[in-house]
Each structure stands twice: as structure tokens, then as C-alpha cells.
Simulated scan of single mutants.
Amino acid sequence: MKTHAIRTFLFTTILAGLGYFAYFKAFLHDKTSQMKSVYAIAFHQKPFSETETPRLPAADFKTRKLIILLWMWPRGYKFPLGVCLAKYGIDGCHLTANRSWYENADAVVIQHSDVSSNISLLPPQTRPSNQLWVWFNMEPPIHLSNLHKMDNLINLTLSYRQDSDIFSPYGWFENLSESENFTIPKKNKLVSWVISNWKPQDKRVQYYEELKKHIPIDVFGRGHLAVPDGKILPTISQYKFYLAFENCQHRDYITEKLWRNSLGSMTVPVVLGPPRENYELFLPADSFIHIDDFPSAKELAAYLLQLDADEEQYRRFFNWRFSRVVMIHSWVTHYCKLCKAMHQKVKHKTVPSIEKWFI
């Protein structure tokens, strides 16, 4: 009996020891896995994923990249987001359009026209602490509605206006490190204009109607001449002058009509928009022709014909190209500039009324 009892005791003890060892091994493995997971997140051992919701410990917010959430793709356009470093030398942010990142986003960018029709399209009103809401807009006031819906919601403004918290124009100049030669494309035509939204009551259409009485103008767009797919700039570059006419006259509203269509195609821009003084904040005074410089469309036409006959005078409008290069925005440009501004600790506040400021 004693021998049997001793054997039973030893067998039970061994089984208990093996069970405890297995439990302790599993416990250590689980803790080790947890520690590895925390370490990986804190030190970015793997890239952010667009398919998972982040759960970062609060302490890690001091060292991680800032998270900028696009609440909606602007106007529905989708584009690569991870290009700020390669394109602009701007780093330190994770741009995402995945709303599962909302709780951890440092900034949420709201493009006005995407939410203006329905306030329910805005992000949840109960936002995480220290999260900034950024009002993003590249349209003039005449095209905006329901600005009052943004009252006391916005912390930063991002737009083409120079007095925005983050100023992001349609285009800009960058200085060349050294002077470069350039070649003006061969030009065998005089004046062109591309227009997609024809409204007879607009100032630009009315001015065109008067100008065409005195000088030939080729108009491209709906209801006019067709442009071969993907060849808008090569087409425009055959002309000496381009009508960079804005659809409205608003402070700082100088769009791709000038930056891309005209300067991007090596034509001399004839501008209609804000006053000349406003243009000169962005452009050399001798790089463009403003309609306000002439008492009438007839005098403007006479000047363009004079330049057409005088090659030396015409070429002077290109002198700036020896020392500068034109940069044209893409959608992601604006978000990259926001990233840079946030790292520079741009001052933020709660804007009582976007409407009072912008209009």
C-alpha cells in the first residue's frame, strides 16, 4: 500500500509540474508577443496600414508621425498620398483617407464643397481632444454655399488666399540656382482661349465678345474648337497669347488658367481677374498683360498686334524664365503644405465665422 501511495503521489506531482511548466511557457510567450507588438508600433517596425484601426499608447504620440485624415477625397478625385517627401522634401506625416483613423487623427481636412450641401456629411461633432479641423477650399466665394455651417468648428484654414493659416496657391515660382537657357516654342498663331463653362453674363465672356471684333481668337472647349485628348498644352503653345480669364474677380484667385494653361505652355498671359497689383504679388510685372492696362478691348487688341510684329518686344515677356521656374499644384500639394505647417507649430484657433473672413 505504501509503495502504491508513493507512486501515485510522485505521478500526480510530475503531472502538476508539467502543467505548470506549460502554463508558464505560454504566459511568457504571450507577454513576449505583446511586448514585441508594442515595440513595433512605438518604433514603426512596420508601415501604417490603411486596413487596420491604430491603437497607439498615448506616450507614442510624442515620437510618431502626425496623422492627417482627408475626410473625403476632394471632389471625388483620388491620388497617391505618400509622396510628400519625394516631391516636396516634407516628412513627418501619415496622410490617409481611411476614416477608421479618425480617433487618432491629429488633423481632419474638410474640403468645403464636399460637405456644404448637407451638414450630416461633416465629421462627428464629438472630436478627440487636441484634434484640429482644417477648412480646405480652392474656390472663390461666388461658388460656395452654406459657409455658416462651419461656424465655430474650424481651427485652421487652407486655401489660395494669402491670409489663410496655410497658404497654398494654384501655382508659384521657384528661383533657379543658376541662370538657364530656354527655347520659346515655334508660334504661328496669335490668340487662344480655353473655356469649359460658358456664361454670356460673365465679364470674361462679355470682354471676349468685344475683343474678337478687333483680333482673331481661337476658342477651345464645349461648343467651340475641340482639343485632341491630352494635347491641350501643345495646342496652346502654338499661340503667342493666351486669355487667362478667371470666372470671377476675387482677391488672390489666380488659377491654373494662368499657371498651367498659359505659363505652362510658354504663351504670354492676358489676364482678367483681380487687379494688377494682386497679380504682381505672385508674378513679375513684365510677365503678363492685364486688361485693366487698356481703356478698351480695342486698345488691347492693337497692343497685341504690335507685339506680334515686334519679336524683340514680345520676347521680353519671357525674361523671367532665365532665373525662375513655374511650379503647379496638384491635389496632394495642399496636404503636404499642411503637414509642414503643423510641424512648424502653426498657430490655430477656433474660427467664429469662415463666411465673415472669406467673403
Rank of each mutant, 00 (worst) to 15 (best):
Y239C: 12
T8K: 12
N98Q: 14
S296W: 01
L272S: 07
S49E: 07
A226R: 09
T96S: 06
K65M: 03
Q201D: 13
R260S: 14
W259I: 08
P140D: 06
N319H: 15
R316C: 08
L69S: 06
I291P: 00
K189R: 12
G171Y: 05
N130G: 09
P169Y: 01
K356Y: 06
V271S: 06
S49C: 07
K31E: 12
H112A: 00
L121G: 01
H4W: 15
E312R: 15
K298L: 04
M138W: 03
R276W: 13
T96I: 03
F282P: 03
L10Y: 13
L18Q: 14
R321A: 14
H4R: 13
L300T: 03
C84Q: 03
C248D: 14
Q201Y: 13
T63F: 00
E311F: 05
Q206R: 08
A309R: 09
K2T: 09
R276M: 10
T126M: 08
Q162C: 11
V38M: 13
L132F: 06
R324M: 14
P54W: 00
A341C: 10
G273W: 00
T13G: 11
F288G: 08
K189G: 04
K199D: 08
Q45N: 04
R7T: 11
G19H: 09
K78E: 06
I184W: 11
I328R: 09
Q306V: 00
Y77W: 11
G273I: 01
R99P: 03
T235L: 05
G76P: 02
A40D: 04
W71F: 04
K186H: 12
W73S: 08
K231V: 10
Y242T: 03
V194S: 14
P200V: 04
T333A: 05
H29W: 13
